[in-house]
Amino acid sequence: MSYRIIDTTPLDALAKPLLDGLQHEYATRYREFRSDSEASAAQELARYPAALFAPPDGAFILVEHEGEIVGGGAFKRYDAHTAELKRIWTHESQRRKGIARRVVEELEARAVHLGYRRIYLTTGFRQPEAWGLYFDTHYVPLFDRAIAPEIHVRLPFGKDLRRPGDVDSLDDLRAREPLGARQ
């Protein structure tokens, strides 16, 4: 089975399955916490202009398999040395096959190529598969794990691309309080 990586933009018609899949995923997973989960999910996906996910500061990739888009993801500039991963998604029929891991690896390689030294990301408290992916790919949790994930709402992770496992280089990214505390 071959999977092809496509460098593109969220505005490309090929990106529609990824964006629709993410919207459905967000709306479904957080429905019991947001009465307007569909609108909230759509708003989250429209939050950033597509230009942020394009070189020289960002990237947006899709994974194509047998003519279908089955995964993808993106990053944008977080600060001068840090890329921020966004929109990591795998079609539910293709999960547990290493696609999300490959997306993360591909995005990390592009981030290094663009001169970034670190990666930052947040994921939701209702996305344990994502937490597992980030733990498995050597991302460091930047939140107090002794506090229930739903208190944090968004769970930040980071990774030093030059020295994976170096937590000191990530200290300025660490959450000082739960990211949901002010919502």
Rank of each mutant, 00 (worst) to 15 (best):
A50V: 01
T122E: 15
E177M: 11
E84H: 06
T8Q: 03
A146Y: 03
P164N: 11
A148V: 15
R4D: 10
R126F: 13
R31N: 15
L52W: 13
Q43A: 15
G73A: 13
G115L: 04
S40H: 09
V112N: 03
L161R: 09
I151K: 10
D166F: 01
S35I: 10
M1A: 07
A100L: 02
D144H: 13
L45K: 02
W89Y: 10
R163C: 14
A59E: 00
L14R: 15
G180A: 02
A130C: 04
G71L: 05
G58P: 02
K86C: 04
Y139F: 07
S93N: 02
A111K: 03
R87P: 04
Q94F: 08
R182P: 12
E84R: 00
A39D: 12
A51K: 09
L11R: 14
I69Y: 13
L179N: 12
D144C: 05
L155V: 08
L170A: 04
E108G: 01
W89A: 01
P156Q: 10
H65K: 13
K16D: 06
W89T: 07
A13R: 14
A80R: 06
E105V: 11
I119S: 00
I119R: 09
F60K: 05
R34Q: 09
L22W: 03
I6S: 06
F143H: 01
A74F: 01
D171W: 01
R117W: 07
F53A: 13
P17H: 12
L11F: 08
A51G: 00
K86N: 08
E68V: 11
H138V: 03
F157H: 02
Q183E: 15
Y116W: 13
T137R: 02
R145P: 07
P10V: 12
I6L: 11
P149G: 03
L121H: 03
D20Q: 10
T90C: 04
R163T: 15
L19F: 12
D168Y: 09
R31F: 12
V140G: 01
T122I: 05
A41Y: 00
R102T: 07
A42M: 11
T137S: 12
E177N: 14
A80E: 08
I5V: 09
A51C: 09
E25M: 11
G58T: 05
T122C: 10
R154D: 14
D79Y: 08
P56S: 00
R87N: 00
A42P: 11
L133V: 03
A148L: 09
V103S: 00
E92L: 01
L45P: 07
V153Q: 13
S37H: 08
Y78T: 11
E108T: 01
K16G: 02
A80K: 15
S35Y: 09
E105S: 14
P156K: 05
E92Q: 14
L22T: 04
E44W: 14
E64V: 12
R154Y: 09
A83N: 15
A39Y: 06
A83E: 12
R163E: 14
D168R: 07
Q183K: 14
E92F: 03
K97V: 09
Q183L: 15
V167G: 03
